[in-house]
């Protein structure tokens, strides 16, 4: 006797399972949103840092760098760059690009003003303060 295996049962399991696990995802996301204030460093999300995030986005920095491990893997992790390098180094580095060393990877110069550089650094400072469960493993990112 062959086992009963009907398309309608399979379909019900698909729809039921999909709804069930989507609701679970929504539930966990809801809890995450409740917990985030303790972890996401929102108290340091200043106007300046918000402007910095805008600069980060409109220069497509994610096209080369990672931020908290997400992005391209062509250039260093910047989620913790504030800790690794400090504000002055970051600004000087951005201003001195591209290095023009033959054969080396090049970063474009975005001609940022001092105010924009400060905003970007504020954004990195805010990012470095996010509780990332101790990632990355060390300061090199």
């Amino acid at each position: 006797m062959s086992s009963a295996f009907t398309k309608s049962a399979a379909r019900n399991i698909f729809y039921g399972g999909a709804v069930f696990f989507f609701l679970l995802l929504v539930g966990l996301s809801f809890d995450t949103m409740q917990t985030l204030p303790k972890r996401d460093n929102r108290e340091n999300l200043s106007e300046s840092a918000i402007r910095g995030k805008h600069i980060w986005e409109t220069r497509n920095c994610i096209g080369c760098h990672t931020l908290l491990g997400e992005g391209a893997y062509f250039a260093p992790e910047l989620g913790n760059v504030y800790t690794r390098r400090g504000p002055e180094f970051i600004k000087a580095w951005i201003q001195s690009q591209p290095t023009g060393v033959p054969g080396r990877r090049q970063m474009p110069n975005f001609n940022l003003t001092d105010a924009q550089l400060n905003d970007l650094v504020e954004f990195f400072k805010y990012t470095a303060g996010i509780d990332t469960a101790k990632w990355p493993p060390n300061v090199e990112g």
Binding site: S2, A4, F5, T6, A9
Partner: peptide
């Protein structure tokens, strides 16, 4: 009385 396979529809057993 009769040998049976898994009770019910096999589909639910994948889920189980």
């Amino acid at each position: 009385d009769q040998p049976r396979t898994l009770p019910g529809d096999l589909a639910i057993w994948f889920f189980i």
